[in-house]
Structure formats: structure tokens, C-alpha cells
Amino acid sequence: MAADRAKAFRILRWVAAILLAPVILFALAAWIGSSIPRNGDWIEPDPSDGRTIPILIGHNGIHTEIVMPLVSPEMDWRPVFPARDIAAAFRPYTHVAVSWGERAFFLETPEWSDLDPITAIDAMTGGEGIVHVAHYVRPATSQDYRILHLRPSEYAALVRDIAMQLDPAETREILPGYDRYDVFYTARGRYHIGNTCNQWTGDRLAAAGIAIGQWTPMAGGVMKWVPHP
């Protein structure tokens, strides 16, 4: 009986090792990939030296978003993300937060307690991309929302690249958000384990010339490039 228990324990250990190995390898690859720089010579401009556009990079530990001024000389987001698309349309919004993810996962997981493992697995193996847009009033910096100052040319490149990720206006679907101040829009791209929501954030920042890791599938891989407040 003792020998049988020992054998069963050894089998369980091997099963656990087999199941954990891909997770460990993914985490290791993500750490290495996010540590290899793109635009490694970029230096954040000093606002006292000239005009800059402050943006925020926000995260909840798993997912990241880019928070931008609603209106600036480089971009007026109001025609692209009109307030009429959200329930609380008449608040004095000052910023929009944009992030990207897998359609089914986004729409079916308003809270992490709603997470369905099957939905998560399906997302990792490939799914349709969708953009989440939240409207904010004077968002404050914090540990979870860190400020970056961009040069006007860098910000212009950022907003241009984000706009290119959206479906054309004539075919774009508008889908209800989680609350009264947010909304989803159909977007370009396919979500999978190599192209996650955080990789999308990293790619947008890289397109603007900002220093970021080569592969940033996890939120931490993005946030380690953004200075603490």
C-alpha cells in the first residue's frame, strides 16, 4: 500500500511538472523579451524645456491601457470616440483610455470573478481583436496610472498608430461597455498568446518611438518601462 501511494505521488509530481513547465517557460520568455529594448535611446522630454503632451499608462496588474487627452492640437478624439456611444454622455470628459484585447474574453469577463477558463484558453489560441475605450474626467497619476511626457511628434505618431488599429467607421461595431462611461469597438488584429493586450500597448508605444520591451505579453513587462510617479 505504501509503495502504491509513493508511486501515485511520483506520478502526480510528474503531471504537475508537465503542467507547470509551459507556464514557467512563458513567464521566463516574457521577462526576457520585455527586457530587450526597442527605441532604447529614447529619453523622456522635460516639460520645462518645451511643449509636451502628458499621457498615462494604466494597469490593473493584468491589463494595460493608454490614457490620452480628449483634445489636443495633434488629435481630437471626439469624432472617433463620440460621447454619444456611452451611457453617461454629458459629463465633462477630458481624457480617453484605449486598450485592446480578445472579443469574447473582453465581453464575457466584466469582472475577474467571471473568468471562464475555456474563454481564456480560446483567447490564447486566437480570437478577434476589439478595442475598449473609457472616458475619464481629469485622471490622476498614481502607482497604477503613471505619466509619460511625449514630444508633439511622438504623440502625433502614437495617435496615428492607434487610429489605424480601428475598423473603418462604416463597418465598425459599437458594443456596450462595462459601465456608463466606457464602450467597445471592433478593431483590427488577432489576439493570441504571442500578441496579447499588453503587447498591443507596447507596440503602440514603440510606434511612437518610446522605449519599451521587444515582447511585452504581461502588464509588468510594459510597466517596468514607465517611471514610477
Rank of each mutant, 00 (worst) to 15 (best):
T94L: 10
A88Y: 09
A157F: 11
A88I: 01
L166I: 06
I118Q: 10
C197I: 06
V137L: 02
F106R: 05
G202S: 09
R204F: 01
N195R: 14
R190E: 14
T94F: 02
M164T: 15
V159N: 07
A87I: 14
A123H: 04
I86V: 14
T109L: 14
E170H: 12
I118G: 05
T119A: 14
R146W: 03
W100S: 04
E154W: 02
Y136P: 00
G189M: 00
V131A: 13
P79M: 07
V133Q: 08
E108D: 15
A89P: 02
P176C: 01
G126W: 01
D203T: 04
A87M: 12
P79E: 06
I130E: 08
A208K: 01
T171P: 05
E173C: 12
Y191V: 11
G101K: 10
R103L: 08
E173R: 12
T201D: 02
A169E: 14
W112N: 13
S113L: 12
I86P: 02
H135S: 00
M124K: 02
F184L: 05
A123P: 11
A134H: 01
V80W: 06
L166P: 12
L205E: 01
D203Q: 08
I130D: 11
A134Y: 05
H135Y: 02
Q143I: 09
T125D: 04
I210K: 04
E170F: 10
E173D: 13
D122L: 07
D182Y: 01
P168L: 08
V133M: 06
A208R: 08
W112C: 04
E74D: 03
V96L: 08
I118L: 14
T201R: 00
P117L: 14
T201Q: 00
E173P: 05
F81Y: 07
D114W: 12
R138S: 10
R103V: 06
G209H: 00
S153R: 13
Q199I: 02
D203C: 07
H192D: 14
I212D: 00
R138N: 12
E173H: 03
A157D: 15
P117I: 15
D76C: 03
D114Q: 06
D161N: 15
T141C: 07
I162P: 04
R103I: 08
L107E: 13
G127L: 04
D203P: 08
A83H: 07
Q199L: 02
Y181W: 09
T196A: 08
A123Y: 01
G209V: 00
I86W: 02
W100L: 09
G101A: 10
A83C: 09
I121Y: 07
I193M: 10
H135E: 03
E128P: 00
P152W: 04
I147H: 02
M124T: 01
D116W: 12
F81T: 09
I121K: 04
A157E: 13
I121R: 05
S113N: 12
R188Y: 08
